[in-house]
Design a binder for these strands. Structure first.
Lengths: 206, 206
DNA sequence: CTGTGTGAAGGCTTTCACAGCC
DNA sequence: GGCTGTGAAAGCCTTCACACAG
């Protein structure tokens, strides 16, 4: 099919477009031009159109895009692998926070279990997610065939936990530890480093 | 001085290098080559060297970089504006979580106040950060001359809160709401969208 | 001989310009 | 006329290759 590898940035933007389309749908808008949608997404119209050409043709010339049509097209690209179960490792401040945060479920992800080396029940108070011991990690990943993990352990332990998870079969990691993880090439890691984002912002203030 | 604008990616990497240097310092390493440091940071040696040329020359040919020397040089570039006070707006699940999370303080940022339209004292239980009403937001920003804000309000209210903050003088925003914010060109926004990161990861799993 | 600093080359992404369809 | 789809151009970032300093 698509011969060239699709840029990661394109995939990120697809998610943004999807969000905007959702909002349009709620407002009963049926058709949208690349100009309008791009503006809502904060990009240039040509970029939106270029992004879409990676996957096919979805618009009608002279008219624009059918909102729900484009939306399901993007869902088809993105969504195929959407209903992944996810585990969270490291139920400290940030970890328990993310468990409480509903934003994942809303987008179709479910955190099916949380792990900690020293599970403190108080931390999981009021949560419906199962809290398990770190010693169960490998077995759980294998048994349930989990592919995605959110990593919120202290920096010091991040790499060793990653090694264990990768050995058990995890393929994608959302890493919140301020550490550069070493993983085999076929494993994908996205880093979210909050302190770094602030540092970066502060640089650009004059 | 430097005529061309420095790429944002370079600034991000500077933060990573700084982290690695810190670790080297703790281990009493005095000298490091671009190859070793780059490997620790997960980039190519030439890129590290190119990044540094934006700011000057910091190495010794045939030897490498003095760890603490390079570290303070980078701190000088990044750190000039490091001790920014920060406010957090939106004390919901994610917001109160971030307040509890210590990762910011460690890197030199302090959240000096938190705001919510309906401050629930229970949410702030055990926190030392002052919890204030949203109606005090503008005045506080003006009085304390705050420039940076962390935004963790529901998507629906994000834009209006941003408008108010920008009018009051905020210059940089770390936005956790899954919304594309509209701001004047001189205002800088970094987006952290957790659901999008997961979506992105799941796409790359086969 | 080792390892930095850097102009030039290469590769990737964005933007332009316009052909083509409604 | 209006707006998409897309090859070509431009711009940006990364990598190479090597001059040069210790």
């Amino acid at each position: 099919m698509t011969n060239t590898e699709i840029p990661r940035k394109t995939i990120y933007r697809l998610s943004i477009f999807q969000r905007c389309l959702q909002r349009l749908k709620e407002n009963k808008v049926e058709t949208v031009s690349s100009e309008a949608l791009a503006k809502a997404a904060g990009v240039k119209p040509t970029q939106l159109r270029k992004d879409l050409t990676h996957f096919g043709q979805f618009g009608t010339r002279g008219l624009g895009y059918n909102v729900s049509g484009l939306s399901s097209a993007i869902a088809g690209v993105l969504g195929s692998s959407r209903l992944q179960p996810v585990i969270l490792v490291g139920v400290g401040n940030l970890g328990s926070a993310l468990l409480r945060y509903g934003g994942f479920q809303k987008e179709g992800f479910e955190i099916v279990a949380a792990f900690d080396s020293l599970p403190v029940p108080a931390r999981a108070k009021g949560l419906k997610t199962a809290l398990m011991k770190a010693t169960d990690l490998t077995r759980f990943i294998r048994r349930q065939n989990i592919k995605m993990a959110i990593l919120t352990v202290p920096a010091l332990h991040a790499q060793e936990v990653v090694n264990e998870m990768v050995a058990a079969g995890i393929q994608a990691i959302l890493n919140f530890s301020p550490v550069v993880l070493e993983v085999p090439k076929n494993i994908i890691v996205n880093n979210v480093d909050l302190a770094m984002e602030l540092e970066n912002l502060s640089y650009f203030i004059r």
